[in-house]
């Protein structure tokens, strides 16, 4: 097993918790200074997505479009043709599903520079339930030619990802989560579109995680370490383009892979890794995520427990796949 250098993370115990959506609002304000063409278009949700932070600071570049998401995405496309860089403020389901055909025809197909941000991504949507939770957004965007899809692990990575998005020309999707979550990256961390980060190395099993689920995967690595299991953890913030080489290398080193995401096990990270490994390096796998179900409204901890997204579930999947590999 060749040791590979890992990216440092901050200690989980006593970690500072920041809500990614608030970091998103503040970062928009900072980006606006350097980019006069940055605009924010809102679908009547600014005080939930926290685009209200931007609206207060840069009012002349904030446009309320009302509760009409298909039009919201279409207007963004038109603004992009005139050289503006619209950032979208709405919840994932109303973006990725309500306005899907608009995204396809006037943003993805013409490859326009629109930054599609899905707030309240994943399962933890403040007790709003299945209409507001997103099980299939990564699957949808990943299947759209030319759309870059990013799911950051924490507020630090989110802000860096937004800077990278601003510097990149083309349609992009960004997952933004609602509730405060531990900050795992220090100021030295460097996000790069399409690059995965090895956070822990180990030869017994390889865990691949995306989004905030990476934080729970870090805890799973600690649970496994107590049992003497050396798990590697690869964080994949860019679902597309996928860092195929890093994924294949991890499979080669461990021969047993677990994926972990706050998304359906179909079509998102788990789907992408399974497709990749089936072609490049067939490897036993387990996929931790929503098991092809819609969710419900409940407190966060209850949801994570009931739908199998806790560190314990990730560790259990790791034991299983190791046993299967032998």
């Amino acid at each position: 097993m060749s040791a590979t250098s890992t990216v440092a993370t901050l200690p989980l115990a006593g970690a500072n918790a920041i809500a990614p959506r608030e970091a998103w609002g503040h970062e928009l304000v900072e980006l606006a200074e350097g980019y006069p063409d940055l605009l924010v278009l809102d679908g009547d949700l600014a005080n939930s997505t926290r685009a209200d932070i931007f609206a207060a600071a840069v009012p002349d570049r904030f446009f309320e479009m009302g509760i009409a998401e298909q039009n919201l995405l279409g207007v963004a496309a038109g603004l992009a043709t005139v050289g503006y860089v619209p950032w979208i403020s709405t919840f994932v389901p109303f973006l990725a599903k309500r306005a899907l055909d608009q995204i396809r025809v006037v943003i993805a197909q013409p490859h326009l520079n629109v930054k599609m941000c899905g707030a309240y991504s994943g399962m933890l949507t403040g007790k709003t339930g299945k209409t507001h939770q997103s099980v299939e957004d990564l699957a949808i965007f990943r299947a759209m030619p030319g759309v870059v899809s990013i799911a950051p692990a924490d507020a630090v990575e989110l802000r860096q990802a937004m800077r990278a998005m601003m510097a990149h020309d083309g349609p992009m999707y960004l997952r933004v989560t609602r509730d405060p979550s531990p900050v795992i990256f220090g100021p030295d961390y460097r996000f790069e579109i399409g690059r995965a980060a090895l956070l822990r190395d180990g030869g017994d099993v390889g865990i691949i995680a995306t989004g905030v689920q990476t934080v729970r995967a870090l805890e799973a690595v600690e649970l496994l370490a107590v049992e003497g299991v050396h798990a590697a953890l690869l964080h994949v913030p860019t679902i597309k383009p996928l860092d195929v080489d890093a994924v294949v290398a991890l499979a080669e080193r461990t021969g047993a892979i677990v994926t972990a995401e706050d998304h359906s096990i179909i079509g998102g990270l788990g789907g992408a890794i399974a497709e990749t490994l089936a072609e490049r390096r067939p490897t036993l796998m387990r996929r931790v995520g929503w098991q092809d179900v819609y969710g419900e409204s409940a407190p966060n901890d209850t949801l994570l427990e009931k739908y199998g997204l806790t560190p314990r579930h990730i560790a259990e999947a790791a034991r299983e796949v190791m046993a299967a590999r032998g």
């Binding site: 039009n71 279409g74 207007v75 496309a77 038109g78």
Partner: peptide, 10 residues
Amino acid sequence: LSPGVGMALG
């Protein structure tokens, strides 16, 4: 019409 709105606004 929506991209038209975006162009006119732009």
